[in-house]
Design a binder for these strands. Structure first.
Length: 256
DNA sequence: CGGGCGTTTCCTGGTT
DNA sequence: GAACCAGGAAACGCCC
């Protein structure tokens, strides 16, 4: 009923005189959302709850469209918008009811073949934030201002190592998290610290999520992992693809 | 400002 | 041919 303010408007005209369709997000799978769909969604939420659109930290989500966003937890939303993160998270999850795991063994990803998470800048996709897209030369001001939130207890399930932001720590944490453990990474031999990355690209997206970098790929993540060989924090396992093990210099991964 | 660490990005080449 | 694995190089962001 009465959808006041913004939601009654179908299009929004941006400063640069670009017209943005605010309704397309409704007809697409959330995984296929581009930046415009994301904005349309946020405008919708703002209207629904009578919140001034300007109060939503839209810019903090600009690089999260597509599958990237589908991997975000409530905490991830709150990191980007402390005030309305939870609300946005709930509304978002409502829209992807037909997918998304609420726990471990997730599902088979359906037949979507979007080649690239966001910026599948096919045709008429308008850009709201030019920055996030011109990558290369100006990876400039990727505002990473809301990244010091690792003490919100979100990870503190059991044990409370200061869990830094290092890659190997991130991997260790995903092995402890039932949201990711059997499905995206799993133990091959818990006692010896041998684990296997099951969903390589998802693992990479998750890592990118943590580092606020939507361009992360398994190729790049694995390169970073190879740098650990020397320091013996992580080591490769014979000829087993996607299988690694924690080395003598990795801590806090052992059973108990 | 400078240096170092921990990646990130790119790339060539080899393997499964 | 796709998806991985190995590393070298160079560029970056951040911290001290």
């Amino acid at each position: 009923m009465s959808r006041g303010t913004l939601s009654s408007v179908r299009f929004k005209t941006l400063p640069n005189s670009v017209r943005l369709d605010l309704e397309t997000f409704r007809s697409k799978k959330t995984e296929d959302w581009n930046v415009d769909d994301l904005i349309g969604f946020m405008i919708y939420v703002a209207g629904k709850y009578r919140v001034p659109f300007e109060e939503l930290n839209v810019h903090k989500f600009s690089g999260c469209a597509g599958k990237f966003m589908a991997l975000m937890s409530e905490e991830n939303f709150k990191e980007r918008d402390p005030k309305y993160g939870t609300l946005l998270f709930r509304e978002f999850r409502n829209l992807c009811s037909d997918a998304l795991p609420r726990s471990a063994d997730d599902q088979r990803e359906a037949p979507c073949q979007s080649s690239s998470p966001e910026s599948t800048g096919t045709s008429k996709t308008v850009r709201l934030s030019p920055k996030e897209d011109e990558r290369r030369s100006s990876r400039s001001a990727t505002r990473r201002s809301a990244t010091r939130t690792e003490n919100d207890g979100s990870e503190g399930k059991r044990g409370h190592h200061k869990s830094g932001n290092k890659l190997w720590e991130f991997i260790r944490d995903t092995l402890k998290n039932p949201e990711t453990c059997p499905s995206i990474v799993r133990w091959e031999n818990r006692e010896e610290g041998i684990f296997r990355i099951v969903e390589s690209e998802k693992m990479a997206q998750l890592w990118g999520l943590k580092k606020n970098n939507s361009r992360m790929t398994y190729e790049k993540l694995s390169r970073a992992m190879r740098y650990y060989y020397n320091s013996k924090i992580i080591l490769p396992v014979s000829g087993r693809r996607l299988v690694y093990k924690f080395g003598p210099h990795a801590v806090d991964w052992k059973p108990a």
